[in-house]
Design a protein around this nucleic acid. Structure first.
Lengths: 369, 369
DNA sequence: TTGTACGCGTTATCAA
DNA sequence: TTGATAACGCGTACAA
């Protein structure tokens, strides 16, 4: 069923039917009702290709992600994608997923815009001076950013308050008596990593403190790097008593390193991580449960879809800037600093989780390796 | 730059230019060369909307995934998606990602096909009698399946030899003396779970054995369910001495459960898992390193893209059926069954990884809880 | 081997 | 308030 057939059936011209369907003002209310009813009845859907040809709009939003062969694609990216796809599916738009070699990324944006194949983009994981932002702005293409950068342009973004979240997490640890706190952060080229470090340092500075030597580490956010970093930090006698991690995967590595070294999470070293709520790896099922700064990334994807559609509809980017506050979720991976009498250095049995119940195992401690 | 302008520039008709570009035979070689050169020079790209309108082909392949609010989307799905997107990006096609409420999934396939909006689909995670397969076959829409089902239709698929992989893994455990082996499997409605269980049982049957009571467990493949299942299995005195897990995430939960119970992976309980090679969670970095049946799922996504394009081009589905053999990767999570003299039941220190070096810790054993 | 002419289904312009 | 008509850019019978 196409427009011509629908118009013929109604005894109207295509023009009128088209206008009725698209909400133009200059059409009689009675006519509109007729048209709408018939369209619904025949389950009429405008042909997107024809519409695209006629309007020049693509009816498509895209998200590009750089891939190198066998290279890591951040699982957070996909979780964002799930929310975005969910949102876009509720509209008439399509979501086009495009992989690109990293060195051709800007080119691809340009091409897609110039060819009119895409109406708007979602940018994720912006770097501090992300070249995509001025590029797309210059091209006049609508876009929304997941995160913020230092680019001095009025662009639409959705971000979490990373600085505040990590400042609050740090303050919590300080309140519990911790002083030597480490930060396992992501790639320092990424905006969120900078913000988190800033929050971390700010909270320390507020009490006249600063990070100890070598306590801030940047690396890709995988279990493996979390392990390596934590291991390097914790195996020395003058180890930090608390660790902030930028992702739950990093924290997973921290837990493994602690076990390796016979340290009990919570008792010997407190851990707080940022939690993007990956559905298959939950902080609350860690052992012990992992304290987090929480902000579900899938919801961010959903909201970014809404914002992008607004942006495409012409909403001013200044009015599309949102910062979400993270919840700080306290769990057993965090505990007060143990007193001077406690074994500040001596690693203890890894089987410490039962200590709260019936088996303190204070006699179970062994000397460090 | 469009076709008309290009033709005008060359002093040719649009028809000739179009035919030259699209590889029609009836065009002079000299003309073709001219046209090709000019097209390259002006960086001419046919307008996809116009082409779609003229040909009826959409130039788009799609992958649908069911989402319910806050529901788990399998991380393996996304890893497959990464490979698929990578492949499709090398073609002129687009990849459309579509979220759908589970109860409208079939409807969505129908609509997309009937409206001519999609040229082909990749189906992932097929159930045993997957209704999508007969539906799409009836619609005449090209599709390829990641996995196999029991549907009696000649459809294109790419699968791994799950039965063989789990039979070999089981056989390895049997060779090492294990008899009481458990299987932590995925949703039993999914084909791969059935195949794996079949392989598991076959290998046992070959030695006149069968799984012990309650040793086969089905559940979603998350860390949490892996933990629960393993915990239930391992906390009883008559526990299995080896566990097969259908995913690395499940194995992660198994490791946690073992630690909880003071059991050493490898020594007290051997573990093998299937590894789809999620880049951010590597079996080789487990502690101890996790033995696996390995088959990178991203590569499967890539290959499925190639196959789908062939299928759309008209290749017979019978000629698009591939089964990949998994590698069996031996690592320290697997060890021979300990002799009768060993503490078959008594849990031991979790800090067992150093036992191979300088500290056997044979005196370190504690009674079970 | 090349060109003419039309159709794909829609929206936009203009006149009625 | 409605309708005829012309794009949009391409592919393809059919004619030359």
């Amino acid at each position: 069923m196409n427009l011509r057939e629908l118009a013929a059936h109604l005894g109207l011209s295509q023009t009128t039917v088209s206008r009725a369907l698209n909400g133009y003002p200059d059409v009689a209310e009675a006519t509109r009702r007729q048209v709408m009813d018939a369209a619904r009845q025949f389950n009429y859907r405008p042909n997107p290709a024809a519409r695209r040809l006629a309007t020049g709009r693509a009816g498509t939003v895209a998200i590009l992600f750089p891939v190198e062969r066998n290279l890591l694609v951040d699982p957070h990216f996909f979780e964002l994608l799930a929310g975005l796809a969910d949102m876009i599916a509720r509209t008439e738009m399509e979501l086009s997923l495009r992989a690109t070699p990293p060195d051709q990324e800007l080119d691809n944006y340009r091409r897609l815009v110039n060819a009119g194949r895409v109406d708007g983009f979602v940018l994720s994981s912006p770097t501090l001076q992300d070249p995509r932002i001025p590029e797309l702005a210059a091209l006049g293409a609508p876009f929304v950013v997941h995160g913020r950068t230092e680019v001095a342009l009025p662009y639409a973004y959705l971000d979490i308050d990373n600085e505040d979240a990590f400042a609050r997490a740090t303050a919590l640890l300080l309140d519990l008596g911790h002083v030597d706190i480490a930060l396992l952060n992501g790639d320092p080229a990424l905006g969120f990593a900078v913000d988190r470090e800033r929050g971390f340092r700010a909270a320390l500075a507020e009490r006249g403190l600063a990070p100890f030597e070598g306590r801030v580490r940047n690396a890709p956010m995988t279990e493996e790097t979390g392990y390596r970093s934590a291991r390097a930090l914790l195996e020395r006698p003058e180890r930090p008593t608390a660790i902030l991690a930028s992702s739950v995967l990093l924290a997973l590595g921290v837990y493994r390193a602690a076990r390796d070294l016979g340290l009990a999470i919570g008792r010997d070293v407190s851990v707080i991580a940022h939690d993007d709520a990956l559905p298959y790896l939950k902080a609350e099922t860690f052992d012990p449960p992992l304290a987090t700064t929480l902000s579900p990334i899938r919801h961010a994807g959903y909201r970014l879809g809404e914002m992008l559609i607004d942006r495409i509809a012409g909403v001013d980017p200044q009015n599309l800037q949102e910062i979400l506050t993270c919840d700080l979720v306290f769990r057993a991976s965090v505990a007060p600093l143990r007193g001077e009498d406690g074994p500040r250095r001596g690693p203890t049995s890894a089987a410490s989780r039962s200590r709260t119940k019936d088996d303190p195992r204070s006699s179970d401690r062994r000397p460090a390796r």
